[in-house]
Design a protein around this nucleic acid. Structure first.
Lengths: 347, 347
DNA sequence: TTGTAAGCGTTATCAG
DNA sequence: CTGATAACGCTTACAA
């Protein structure tokens, strides 16, 4: 059915070997012959069969991407970064998501075996040793935001600890003494690091830690809403809330609005991620900016290096900074949207 | 390097043919033999080489997904729906995005040739005839939100026209006489249909159309901001704004807040998409709910059908309703989270 | 500079 | 039931 290299060879009056050499520039071919072959290929609309090609070359031209979820702006932005870089490096993306449990990841991994030249894996809920045991050997892997204390694998992380510490320090600098924390999911590495950062900032400032100010959550708006509502019932109330991510901060904002509590006057608020809608809330949200698409781009870059270098290359571990973006929800007079505010064009 | 079917055959003391039959249950194999083969395969951690397999079977087990962009909640949710359904039907997803121009799509399509069993294509900016000319023949395709008046291809659409008409009718029902429209990108089919819906609602209600109330835009928050700002300079001002999508509505909301214009008291506002954060704005946004993930799921379902049925199956064209969600930005006293309004007049 | 032929790992078609 | 063996479409020594 489809046009193969044989058809091109026949029509061009040469052997398939010559066609292959001509089209891939992988060997000597007389200039004239090559031109003719290329013309024929074009005319026949020939496209090499990638299965056959990767059967022999052992390259598929694809990178596998394993994510725990796709929901929300974080993943949207992450994939965007990955996709851009992958396209630039001539790779396709094999996407698979909605994996939390190790068993699901293992299944997805099995499905990708042999189909990809490299893997980008984000599995915040799986312990590194477990993860390593189910990861295929022989295929380059870049771990995203995973503990990976053990460094037999490339990994790429956001400085959750530093970002959280910076934000909470800022809240404390505003004079707040009871700063609450809306926690992320249990056993989620990002969440744990942000918690560590929160506690470190408290310690740095000599502010006493209070158990009742750490509220469990799971990164959803609903949890943020419930958490803030619970905090409002405390006596004395906290005067500032740091949410482990923006989605929870949004939920908290809703709860505060519903309760008639003014932000930032009666309650300061800050989030983490700097999701794009963070600047559109009222008041605009102070948060830690995570360079999400850059995270994706770097992951692909590392993978591309690994693929080229084989297993000889030493493993890398990179950390991207999460820098605070000051807007108004913390009590600062952020002039209309913070550092990354939309321009008021055509005024 | 990798363990092949030959290794399994040798270790099990049978021929490769038998191994193939046993593992695929594609032919008669003695029960005992099969068990032994399966054990060996397991022990050797054998996984069939998918390139070799698809070389002969002409099936890749992958669906290609071509999107214009990945930015924002819409695509996040869409991919989520697609991914879920694809996983359920045992297919992997080959993702490619950031394609607007026909030439880019063509390139991406060429890259996917032979790699996928089916294609989900969303190309709102490309005319159908052009699109058809660059779409590969022989591979099932489902077009998402494309004009596709010509029905030689499966297609799946959201009722942009009906949804927009419903929302604008609702705004008019509130008594507004000057309802402005923040348009989407030129030559974008969704945008055009929503514009048509806007105009139809005006006509239905006998409200005069005014050129100055149709503001150009491009689906971004920035455009919404600029558009609303421009509308505020009009005299007389409109009293309601319908944005072609939620992102622009959010931008408009920002502009109105910056200008000190109360929503909905001084200016009613509505959007389109019902992106998840639409209920967290202040006031919560009245909008048309697009069943985004359902759109993705249906697309995969249609594709799976096509793949099974070959080219004999008649082409399908489905339309999913976009139903209005009444919240507070339109002036209704929407009770909190936004109950979906029953469909009303004139459809 | 070109052609011949040997694979790559599977599945499918035959005989046995 | 099982085993040779011929494809599948391509790349790559090795010859010519």
């Amino acid at each position: 059915m489809s046009v193969t290299i044989k058809d091109v060879a026949r029509r061009a009056g040469v052997s398939v070997a010559t066609v292959s050499r001509a089209l891939n520039r992988s060997g000597p071919v007389r200039e004239e012959t090559r031109r003719r072959i290329e013309q024929v290929a074009q005319a026949l609309n020939y496209a090499p069969n990638s299965a056959a090609r990767s059967l022999i070359s052992r390259r598929t031209g694809m990178f596998g991407v394993l994510l725990p979820d796709l929901y929300g702006e974080f993943f949207s932005e992450l994939i965007r970064g990955i996709d851009g870089a992958a396209q630039a490096s001539g790779h396709h993306l094999l996407l698979s998501s909605s994996h939390d449990a190790a068993s699901e990841i293992e299944a997805a991994l099995r499905g990708m075996r042999g189909r990809v030249d490299g893997l980008i894996v984000m599995a915040p809920k799986v312990d590194t040793p477990v993860l390593r045991s189910i990861l295929p050997r022989g295929v380059p892997v870049v771990l995203l935001n995973s503990p990976a204390a053990d460094s037999a694998l490339d990994s790429l992380t956001v400085d959750n600890f530093g970002g959280a510490r910076e934000v909470v320090s800022h809240l404390l600098w505003h004079g707040h003494e009871r700063v609450a924390f809306l926690k992320g999911p249990e056993r989620n590495h990002d969440a744990e690091e942000r918690l560590r950062g929160y506690r470190a900032a408290l310690r740095d400032a000599g502010v006493p830690w209070r158990e009742e100010l750490e509220i469990p959550g799971d990164f959803t708006g609903e949890a943020g809403y419930a958490g803030a509502a619970a905090l409002l019932r405390l006596d004395p109330r906290p005067t500032a809330i740091f949410a482990a991510n923006d989605a929870m901060a949004f939920g908290a904002l809703s709860a505060l609005r519903d309760a008639g509590v003014a932000v930032p006057e009666e309650m300061a608020l800050a989030g983490f991620d700097d999701v794009s809608s963070a600047r559109y809330t009222i008041p605009p949200l102070t948060t830690a900016h995570v360079p999400i698409s850059e995270l994706g781009e770097r992951a692909v870059a590392m993978l591309a290096e690994s693929v080229g270098a084989g297993s000889s290359r030493p493993r890398r571990r990179e950390t991207l900074a999460a820098t605070m973006v000051v807007r108004r929800s913390c009590g600062c007079d952020g002039a209309g949207g913070g550092i990354r505010a939309p321009r008021n064009e055509g005024r």
